[in-house]
Computed example of a mutant assay.
Amino acid sequence: MNIKNKLITNGYVFALLATILWSGNFIVARDIRDIVDPFSLSFYRWFLATIILLPFAIVPLIKNIVIVKRHFIYLSIVSILGVSLFNTLIYIASHTSSALNLSIISITFPIIVIIISRAIFKEHIGINKFTGILIVLAGVLLLITRGDISVLVNISFNIGDLWVLLAAISFAVYSILLRYKPKSLSMITFQLITFILGTMYLTPLYLMEFDTRIINEPTVTNTISILYIAICSSLLAFIFWNKSIELLGATKAGMIYYTLPIFTGSLAFIFLDEIISYVHLFSILLIFIGIYITNKNKKEIL
């Protein structure tokens, strides 16, 4: 395997690892959504992730402080989109939106990436990519409707669904903007400064929620849940995801995100005793076929 193919393979592995860790985030967040308020959960998540990363990245950050100052506006924008907004909007939406609606809208993120990349950056969409997207979308819709596509006809959208859509747009733009990360800024430095800025911009919302905050006694389970979100779904997942964007680009990495329902379903089966049927298996097959077709290197322009 030559160096180029090895880097591409690593990019897919990083994207897959990030997606797996994010799927665990959905399981954990569901358990504690009535225990911790949305802004509080986001604040605790990113504050802890920052504290954990700080000893490993503070020295590189200090050395690159001039670069940080020079690109402060850019770093602030990606911090707000990827750290402050994305998961906060998901946590808010989970209180008013159905699980089916959340699933359908959350998978629009890779499609939004492709649309924005095409509209703004004139990125070509080949026949393979277009066909693959349709197959993946069919597989995901089959999965979340359990084979009864007629369920989609009866969906009614509420304010929670709009929050999820905003979250998907926020993360899509964040992923695209990663291509403009200053090359002289190491990934660990970039990660720390976005965590710091994202937490800083969350603080006013966290304080604003003080009067209505749900206060519960900490338990071992709740503590482990928040630590998982902080370490795995925040720190590690974002490092893996940003690295995959760097190696693959936003569009190809975004396609791997379509596998999220597979891992979420598997974790739900293990931890929540949910049944996996033939519909799930057929959906998984469609999703992987679609991802394979989408990422075939065939220069056909649509």
Results as ranks from 00 to 15, higher is better:
A93W: 12
L177Y: 11
V83G: 06
I287D: 13
L285Q: 10
Y257R: 08
I215A: 09
S42W: 11
Y174L: 04
M187W: 09
L272V: 09
I245W: 14
L247Q: 13
L85W: 13
L260C: 06
M255H: 14
L48I: 04
G254Q: 12
A15E: 08
L248R: 07
D148F: 07
S170H: 12
F271P: 03
A253E: 14
I276F: 13
S23C: 02
L85H: 09
F39R: 02
A57G: 14
M200E: 01
A230Y: 01
I67D: 10
A253I: 14
F26N: 06
L143I: 15
L81Y: 07
P110N: 08
M208K: 03
V59P: 03
I245P: 07
T212Q: 05
G82W: 11
E217I: 06
I116F: 14
C232R: 08
T223S: 05
A57T: 13
N154T: 06
L235Q: 11
G254F: 14
I62R: 00
L85G: 06
I125D: 10
I67M: 08
F240D: 03
L285D: 07
H95R: 13
S42V: 05
S97Y: 02
G254D: 12
I58S: 07
L89W: 10
L236F: 15
I107R: 07
G198H: 04
I214E: 13
L177W: 04
P55I: 04
S234T: 01
L248W: 13
T221P: 01
A49T: 00
D34S: 05
F190I: 01
Q191H: 09
I8G: 02
T199I: 02
L166T: 11
F39D: 04
V151K: 15
D273M: 08
T194P: 03
S23D: 04
Y292E: 06
R33C: 04
E123P: 07
S186G: 11
I193G: 04
T251M: 12
S156R: 15
E217C: 00
N222P: 07
L165K: 01
S244M: 12
T259F: 12
V279C: 08
I169R: 12
A18L: 02
S103I: 02
L227Q: 05
V59G: 00
T203Y: 11
I8K: 12
T259D: 10
I35K: 00
L165S: 05
T131D: 04
Y206T: 03
I107F: 10
V140G: 12
I159E: 13
I193S: 03
V220I: 05
K122C: 03
S84K: 01
I62F: 01
K4V: 15
I116D: 11
I73P: 03
Y257E: 12
L141V: 15
M208H: 06
W241G: 01
N5Q: 05
L100Q: 03
N158D: 14
V220K: 06
I73Q: 09
D34C: 00
D211S: 04
V78D: 05
T189G: 07
W46G: 04
W163F: 15
P261M: 10
S225K: 08
I239P: 00
D211C: 01
V220E: 09
Y44T: 07
F109R: 03
L141Q: 13
